[in-house]
């Protein structure tokens, strides 16, 4: 017998790990990724590969040479950041912009705070918003879905407007709900196919990687808010269903807002966070300068998260409600 190992209790673990959670999310993104490849062809492949590889590479280089810590790129968080960043980009974005976005996402969004677990803002969204503000034209010119599958899909694709941009211009030529659900519409490569994203969300819920609180509260708030607007004036404001299926709402609600590090931890904290994102999204979509507000809404609520974590406490065992006292 070797030396005995002595440690405090408990001596067993449910064998959950950071890497398992991260790779589960990556797996959950696969249906949406396949949809992106189907609709945008080679361009989507090129952009996504660039984003993932450069995110992993930047994380490795920063940990190895700047922070001088043991690189932990294989916990899957950099891969996930790269993938989510790519999902938020048009599939014909120039490669150097993708790399720049990855650098901002990893370098500023994540490592400058001290790496995984310490960042305040969702790194992929930091990269995306940086690109959106720096290169508004390129970031808002989307290729037409099913236009070309080969290299042409990347170099000179025909462009298409997103449903949300159409919404701003009046509700004349909106695509059908079926097209929106399946993804046959313009938009960033990962956000178009709502059905695939929902499938990934169900997978995550079943694997208990995420809980229902954040996605459901976001989607319900958006639905409710837009329903009120729609019934007030149907000619100006689109229907709730259209809002739910367009833009980055599904991607944001299921994959971006639920990021562990940047979302609150308690039941009511998560609900407030979700409702906040929902309201901000609709406000920006309806009255803001940009057609889509999901990224900004999540980033703003990310900033509120530390407050929610501090002030919204879980219900303690044996805690008496005010009435009883």
């Amino acid at each position: 017998m070797n030396q005995l190992i002595v440690s405090p209790a408990p001596h067993v673990h449910n064998s959950d790990s950071v890497a398992k959670n991260m790779y589960s999310v990556v797996i959950a993104l696969v249906p949406a990724y396949l949809a992106a490849l189907y609709f945008f062809g080679l361009g989507a492949l090129l952009v996504s590969l660039t984003a993932v590889v450069s995110c992993v590479l930047f994380e490795y280089l920063i940990q190895r040479f700047l922070l001088k810590t043991k690189p932990s790129v294989w916990d899957g968080s950099a891969i996930l950041t790269g993938l989510l960043l790519a999902f938020n980009l048009p599939s014909n974005l120039p490669i150097w912009m993708v790399i720049l976005g990855a650098l901002v996402a990893i370098g500023i969004g994540k490592m400058s705070f001290g790496g995984l677990g310490n960042n305040i803002f969702n790194p992929a969204l930091v990269g995306r918003v940086f690109l959106l503000i720096s290169f508004p034209t390129q970031m808002t010119t989307w290729p037409r879905p099913l236009g070309n599958w080969g290299l042409a899909s990347y170099i000179d694709a025909e462009t298409a407007a997103t449903p949300l941009a159409m919404m701003k211009g009046g509700l004349a030529e909106m695509p059908s709900h079926i097209d929106l659900l399946l993804g046959n519409t313009g938009g960033s490569m990962g956000e178009i196919c709502a059905a695939a994203l929902l499938l990934g969300g169900i997978f995550l819920l079943c694997r208990k990687v995420i809980t229902w609180h954040i996605p459901v509260s976001i989607l319900l708030t958006v639905a409710l808010f837009t329903a009120i607007l729609h019934f007030a004036n149907p000619t100006v404001y689109a229907s709730p269903l259209t809002h739910l299926l367009t833009g980055g709402l599904m991607l944001g609600a299921i994959f971006m807002a639920t990021d562990y590090v940047t979302s609150p931890m308690t039941f009511w904290g998560q609900i407030i966070y979700g409702v906040g994102i929902g309201i901000l999204t609709v406000v920006i979509r309806t009255w803001g300068a940009y057609p889509e507000g999901m990224s900004f809404a999540i980033l703003i609520m990310n900033a509120v998260t530390p407050l929610l974590n501090t002030y919204i406490k879980p219900k303690r065992f044996g805690e008496k409600r005010k009435k009883e006292n």
Partner: peptide
């Protein structure tokens, strides 16, 4: 020489309260 291996949090107070 060591006669066993401690595998908890690397903290004297915690190890001391254990054994």
């Amino acid at each position: 020489p060591h006669v066993n291996t401690y595998n908890g949090a690397k903290n004297c107070a915690i190890a001391n309260s254990l054994y």
